[in-house]
Design a protein around this nucleic acid. Sequence first.
DNA 1: GCTATGC
DNA 2: GCATAGCAACGCGTG
DNA 3: CACGCG
Length: 353
Amino acid sequence: MSGKRHGWQAEAMRHHGEKPRADDARGAGPGERPHRGPGLLPPLPVPGRGTQLISLDGRVLTLTNLDKPIWPREGYTKFDLINYYFRVSGFILPHLAGRPLSLKRYPNGAGAPFFFQKRAAPETPAWIRTRRIKHADTGESIDYIICDDVSTLLYLANLACISQNPWLSALPELDRPDILALDLDPSDPDDFEGCIQVALLVKRQLDRFGITGYPKTSGATGLHVYLPIRPAYTYGQCRQFAKIIALLCREERPDLITLESSVSRRGGKLYLDYMQNVKGKTLASVYSVRARTGAPVSTPLKWDEVQPGLRPADFTMENTPARLTAAGDLFAGALAGGHDLMRAVTRAERMLS
DNA sequence: GCTATGC
DNA sequence: GCATAGCAACGCGTG
DNA sequence: CACGCG
Ligand SMILES: [Mn+2]
Ligand SMILES: [Mn+2]
């Protein structure tokens, strides 16, 4: 992965004269250090209050306002958010690596106003990887943040970045997505059962083509299905194929599904959004937390979990570490290798008409 | 969350 | 010192 | 062309 020798080992350093505490150095002994690997990391070895310095990846990171409530009703603080991302970093980082990000930030808490940030701010430390990307027509460019390591991940979390939204394409192929996303958006936020039915419909279509799709909760009201694809085709080509799948699904259940871009014409049906497959558009990353009640997490699912009774609110910042220990990264396959879109399109077009 | 500004 | 404001815009489909 | 959308 990062090739850094420091691994997870973090050294807490005291900030302006705070008194030493007995538990400060927990786990810091060289002999008892868990090794870095695909697994969960232990809790972040710093006190969950005030300002703390921590050394990660050989960089010194300042974590501020750690006891600030971010989910006040749940009692979750900024420390809890940072600690979550630290613990799951080995699982989320492969899904962020090399992808320009839109950050969704909530400096005053999950219930307060948010803002998106795509441009790296001037004060961004030099060790944060950025990539200057030119806008298509206007020669303007944006320095996007790219999160390849745990130090960057925690820097972002300290900015109250609750959700990281990565592109569907990764370096070096920014114009050729390696993920095709189907975004299932219920018109009725409470109709998750309908969403489940549509997801199963999507799977049935994918099965016809021999394509593997990977489902996850969005963490909000819907589901995402990701198709790993070889980064050989343009966003336009991917979108065309996504539209074919969407059309086939709507053909089967026009009573449940709409492809209507106008909200007012959706008639309460689920919007099967294939239009996310556009350069620069993003979805909340897998394992990303959402600024909603209970701190839900966008969670990979096994297809046999996609059935009535599934509830996205059941997957949270609190219980995701345990699920990862038990199930591992169910989305690993969404990154490994990809379908050849061309063969799939040929097969699909034959079926459509 | 952080910086830049204007009072 | 205090109160503010900015922090994403854009590619696409449709009318 | 201007919208609306995410
Ligand atoms: Mn969605
Ligand atoms: Mn959508």
